[in-house]
Design a protein around this nucleic acid. Structure first.
Lengths: 341, 341
DNA sequence: AAAGGCGCCGAAAAGGTTTTCTGAATGTAT
DNA sequence: ATACATTCAGAAAACCTTTTCGGCGCCTTT
């Protein structure tokens, strides 16, 4: 075990650069930041000195002086869940492209921890904050008065004056049904997950509406709610096939459920996609592409959602706010489990 | 669309607090930070004022003054992959418990982007940096000279003088085989993924060694390498059962492969866990608990790995460095697919 | 009563950058 | 030669906090 600390030679400061270039710090600053009032030759000398010293301006000092720090907070309620991550990736992407750095905090769904993190972020003078939820159910707004713009992503805020971005699950339901109809299926069942999820309800609403538009109703006259698991998908599929043998289309609330449905259908001797079509939800690669047959699924474009959230935050920081819930469309990814005519 | 900017009343500063409490900023600072040299009554007055103004010390100013900022960088090469996330969670957890905030950067496996992010982080004067890789293969160290401590997590650095934390995949291979032997299996096959992965090689080494200790060899005399997919698992299982019908244990390189193996075995009429045992790898909930039967798997304890990385970084920041690669043990999670005697 | 000690508070500097304003030097016009 | 405009460089303030050190007033001691 070593106990040295690698004699790090204090990072170069603007003063060092100025001294090396033989100018004042003011001039050095102007030269480096491309302001005018500096002769070309002088600027060159300064830039050369900065290069030699590997000068990197101290963002703390800069942030202290100007109002802005060029940092934002990304407050997620659960890193664990697989919905937060893509949103986070999109946001990080959108920010990283510019000059903004991201503070990541995980509140683990705990309001106390959340508040603690918000305080820490504010003390670091972030320019804005994105709050990423684990479900699309509206969530109570941040308790603390936050003096910077906030954008809620995936889980919208209950306060309509806040800026929220979420996925259009109703539209997604329509999309799935429209596709199944295009596959020539008329007897369509909807097997979904935990009905306490707003997302499950929304998808059911969209599905029902799209069927109604075609003068049809769901097989069984209702959505089959259960849990987001393969086991439920298997059980539901068996039950539905037994009670309604005419069923020839399944819209599933998640890819896991769809995997279960596919498994059950195969064991029941049903031909997918020959006589029955199946559509999943989430477009979770590891499940969709490993399924037999590969699974058609709905993608919520979560990365895009994250990017849009970042853009809205930028706009808000610049003073342009468009309050309310913005619903981003979902996308159908066609694979083998459903073949349109 | 509103274009107001919500008249945010500039955050309270220490000067404001001091004025309200009728003391100097110096006294206010000491009172708030619990230094002595302050009369109890005065301290109370200051704290009250701070409370009233919702005062939060400006971390930028503090960081500028003292050397440390209380921030660290978390540089991941792929957020997408599922190995980086748990490590990240563990690290975030360990830091969040203290007073440290985390800058998250995703380099997407691109060296240029990585360097760009390192520069940005350094300009923000982070106190340390954790580099999280996507694979356990050693990676080249950071190109830039970084004046703060660095810890490599999951993917160790090629430089033995760096501090690296990774998972003990050799030990994991032994662990799996030992367990299968304890289940009474003697004809064990190892179905793994892409052989270019160091992790795949290490697990095979550990498995072979453990079998050798028992005077045995792998079924087929070798590891069956392929891809990390269910499809490969299915194909490999069928092939192995055909060529070596005596096989009664499968150690799989990933849970996906194991799912494929399980599916194939079921279709071949093999009884799992009655006459054949299967062990997966990664302990990926969504795959293990939805499998039929539920899948025994090896867990790399990635969250713990992240936490340990954070601890090592703390230690390094405090000047205590223990260079080299630290291998953290993996853990067996027993489920239905394997039953020890 | 004078000297010393102690408790408490405030002035000031430091940390690195940006910006404004002043001033010097040079060039141009009368 | 004088008045004036133009160009460029530097001094200084500002951002906010922490820490050191000096000093003031009060109490104790002789």
């Amino acid at each position: 075990m070593t106990t040295s600390r690698g004699a790090s030679p204090r990072a170069a400061t603007l003063t060092d650069v100025a001294r090396l270039a033989g100018v004042s710090v003011a001039t050095a600053s102007k030269a480096i930041n491309g302001r005018d009032q500096v002769k070309a030759e002088t600027r060159l000398r300064v830039l050369e000195a900065a290069e030699r010293l590997a000068f990197a301006p101290n963002a703390l000092a800069r942030g202290l002086l100007r109002g802005r720090t060029g940092t934002v907070g990304l407050l997620t309620s659960d890193l664990e869940g697989r919905f937060g991550i893509p949103v986070l990736m999109g946001a990080e992407d959108a920010f990283g492209a510019g000059r903004v750095s991201v503070f990541l905090c995980d509140a683990r769904g705990d309001a106390i921890r959340e508040q603690h993190h918000v305080r820490a972020l504010l003390s670091r003078r972030i320019d804005g904050l994105i709050v990423v939820g684990a479900r699309t159910d509206p969530r109570p707004p941040l308790v603390s008065e936050v003096p910077v713009p906030v954008v809620y992503a995936y889980a919208p805020s209950e306060d309509p004056n806040d800026v929220s971005i979420t996925a259009d699950n109703i539209g997604a339901g329509r999309l799935a049904i429209t596709h199944l109809l295009a596959c020539g299926r008329r007897a369509i069942a909807h097997v979904s997950g935990d009905p306490s999820y707003q997302a499950a309800q929304d998808r059911a609403v969209g599905a029902t509406a799209a069927l109604a538009d075609a003068g049809l109703d769901l097989v069984g006259g209702q959505t089959y709610f259960g849990s987001w698991s393969e086991g439920w998908g298997r059980g539901a599929a068996r039950m539905i096939v037994e009670q309604h043998p005419e069923v020839n289309g399944f819209f599933c609330g998640s890819d896991q459920i769809a995997r279960g449905v596919l498994d059950a259908l195969r064991e029941l001797g049903r031909d997918v996609p020959g006589t029955t079509s199946v559509v999943g939800f989430d477009n979770w690669e590891v499940l969709t592409t490993n399924a037999r047959p590969q699974l058609t699924s709905i993608d919520m474009n979560l990365e895009r959602l994250g990017r849009v959230a970042a853009q809205r935050l930028f706009a808000a920081i610049d003073g342009t706010v468009r309050p309310g819930i913005e619903q981003l469309p979902c996308r159908l990814v066609t694979r083998e489990s459903s073949v349109p005519n």
